[in-house]
Design a protein around this nucleic acid. Sequence first.
DNA 1: GCAGTTTCGCTACTTCGAGTATCGAAACCG
DNA 2: CGGTTTCGATACTCGAAGTAGCGAAACTGC
Lengths: 182, 182
Amino acid sequence: MAPDRPPGRPRSSVDATVFAATLRTVDELGYTHATVDRIAAAAGVAKTTIYRRWPSKGALMTACLVDAFGPLPLAGGSRAEIMSAAVRWGAAKISEPGVGAAFAGVFTDAINDPALREILSTQLQDPYRLVLQETLDEPEQRVLFLIDVVIGTLLHRMGMTGEPMIDADVDALVEMVVRALR
Amino acid sequence: MAPDRPPGRPRSSVDATVFAATLRTVDELGYTHATVDRIAAAAGVAKTTIYRRWPSKGALMTACLVDAFGPLPLAGGSRAEIMSAAVRWGAAKISEPGVGAAFAGVFTDAINDPALREILSTQLQDPYRLVLQETLDEPEQRVLFLIDVVIGTLLHRMGMTGEPMIDADVDALVEMVVRALR
DNA sequence: GCAGTTTCGCTACTTCGAGTATCGAAACCG
DNA sequence: CGGTTTCGATACTCGAAGTAGCGAAACTGC
């Protein structure tokens, strides 16, 4: 059951470096101006190395977001408490430097790119949706709607102001969603 | 007080034709693939004519949306009734062919383009926000948040499915927002 | 009619970023 | 050492936004 390393030169372990460079570049220049060339330069890596690991800029961004978000923390409690924690966790993560801009960018790239939409769905969105759906014991349609509300609100705000939401708005969003749950 | 027409050849009255061609093209091909070349061809107009009237693709899209949305209908009633009508109006408009995709596209273009953001704000968003703010007699911060929720939710759904929201979700959204108003 | 001014369509161009191709050098295995 | 794969570097294709230049057309005022 050894890992059975494949033949040839092993890949250098620069994934984390590239992810960090990606978020940093997006934070500094915005999604559009964060070109793959610049990201590669910021990571000290050749552009070809990036394209060897991820098939497109959107795929790179998606992988970067998956890495940045990590697993959804589920600390038990009532359904309202779970939901509340999830919303606050999402708001906090999306406010980290570069994350919100990367999310908004890859999301809208995906609108006109079916292949990227597939990647985004399966790698980033479906996992969280399924966990929430099971944990809250809500029908799929309902969870999808609530995710629309939470992510949509956060992204719309980020896109407009470029700043994270103020605490009062996060509180209001939590209250709205928790209320809608009953 | 005659209009005092400026000298030179007057502009042909093709604005409406261009707007129609824009929405049709966006509906058929999506925002990204609705190039200015294609839109011009669909409208039977030269590309230079479009750039003589609107400074960028985003500006054209914004003007097109301003035209498509028209004035916010305000049929009196209680604050809840006004809000409810506004949300349903927005949901209906954004579901018209091409409108949602154009909105999402111009919105995300604006994230990385300050000039376009200015155009989008002053020509499309501020007018509606100010009317709502005055009509509902709510503080600016509150109205901004509620707009984030409504538009964000609608755009996120459109981007994911490409389809308008189902009635049940619109109802749920209306209820959430109206509740948050009290 | 004619001079002045502006818009029209057309074609060609510049610019920039995503993604591809090629190639010699380097890193691993047996 | 031979086979295989990754690495960095450079050069390339392609598509779309936006620009430049031009002759023709449409209007005004004289």
